[in-house]
């Protein structure tokens, strides 16, 4: 019970200065906002300006060049496939794993802890270990598949054009599904148990319970997982860079590795800037519904 007389007498911070309350709030927020403007907004605007700079002024030349570059569209397609396949597999595998682990099974607590490890380590590490597992000569996956009689020849996972993108996605599925699993698991546990009991009483079988209780209950968590994962996978760099460096040729290039190359291998700064801006626009367009949803909740 607070002391009423003291509470009544209190009329502001007791230091010598008096600041109106909202003003204090700005002081708390200022360092973060100031830092973000300096370290993020300013460089982003610099890139934007650079992407429009042509000899003697401003112009859209680099964008015209970009949009008529078949390589750019090829990389956009590859990025789309990489992101959609990775995120789709993360959600499916993550949901399946969460459902399997949600029940009363031995050692599930331990599993929950351990399962997040692939997501915790640097993505470079994930790329490297899969590069070794998929090594055409000494890789253990080829050994296993040969021994099982599933393939007759060792497969060149990372250099055969049709296989390389798939291999990169495979490694990224391993790296990324644990996060989705962990947050879906938390979502599952937040669904009240009596909803399931009520559904059972109404004669709902396992599928109906999943369809009408579990999925609606997970809706919000699924959207968050989908949005965060999509943002992360569009930006993914280290895994691809370490695993294939974009090769064979340009077949596993994604937008981030390609912008990096345009900058630091080919030194086409304006062109790279235009590509980075295009990538940002795509990413913002994809994530706008998510931003809107989150902001409405605030």
């Amino acid at each position: 019970m607070p002391d009423a007389s003291r509470a009544a007498a209190w009329d502001g911070p007791r230091r010598g200065f008096r600041i109106r309350e909202p003003a204090v709030g700005y002081l708390f927020v200022a360092p973060a906002v100031g830092l973000l403007v300096a370290v993020l907004v300013y460089p982003a605007l610099t890139t934007l300006r650079l992407s429009f700079s042509v000899p003697g002024g401003l112009g859209a030349r680099h964008y015209i060049q970009l949009l008529s570059d078949p390589l750019f569209w090829q990389v956009v397609r590859q990025t789309a496939v990489f992101v959609v396949a990775s995120v789709g597999a993360h959600l499916l595998l993550g949901l399946g794993a969460a459902l399997a682990v949600a029940g009363p099974i031995p050692a599930r607590g331990l599993f929950r802890v351990v399962a997040l490890l692939p997501w915790v380590v640097p993505d470079v590490v994930a790329g490297i270990v899969w590069k070794w597992i998929l090594n055409p000569l000494y890789g253990v996956l080829n050994d296993l598949l040969l021994a099982a009689g599933l393939i007759a020849q060792p497969l060149e996972w990372l250099t055969r054009p049709g296989l390389a993108p798939l291999s990169v996605i495979l490694a990224n599925v391993w790296r990324g599904f644990p996060f989705v699993m962990v947050i879906l698991l938390a979502g599952l546990q937040a669904i009240p148990q009596d909803l399931y009991e009520a559904a059972s009483l109404d004669g709902a079988g396992p599928w109906a319970r999943f369809r009408f209780v579990t999925l609606p209950g997970l809706r919000k968590v699924l959207v968050v997982a989908l949005a965060l994962d999509t943002i992360w996978e569009v930006r993914r760099f280290g895994l691809v860079q370490a695993m294939t460096g974009g090769g064979p040729g340009t077949l596993t290039e994604v937008l981030s590795t390609q912008v990096f190359k345009q900058y630091f291998h080919f030194y086409r700064f304006e062109y790279a800037s235009a590509m980075a801006v295009a990538m940002t626009v795509l990413l913002l367009a994809v994530s706008l519904p998510y931003v809107r949803m989150i902001m409405q909740e605030e």
Partner: peptide, 28 residues
């Protein structure tokens, strides 16, 4: 804790900055 004017705009701004890819910034 504070009813900041433009607070939700600033939060939206911070949320959006999460979406800017690193390669947009490396050049500058």
């Amino acid at each position: 804790r504070f009813p900041l004017r433009g607070g939700s705009f600033l939060m939206g701004f911070i949320l959006t900055t999460q979406m800017l890819p690193g390669v947009l910034l490396v050049g500058p």
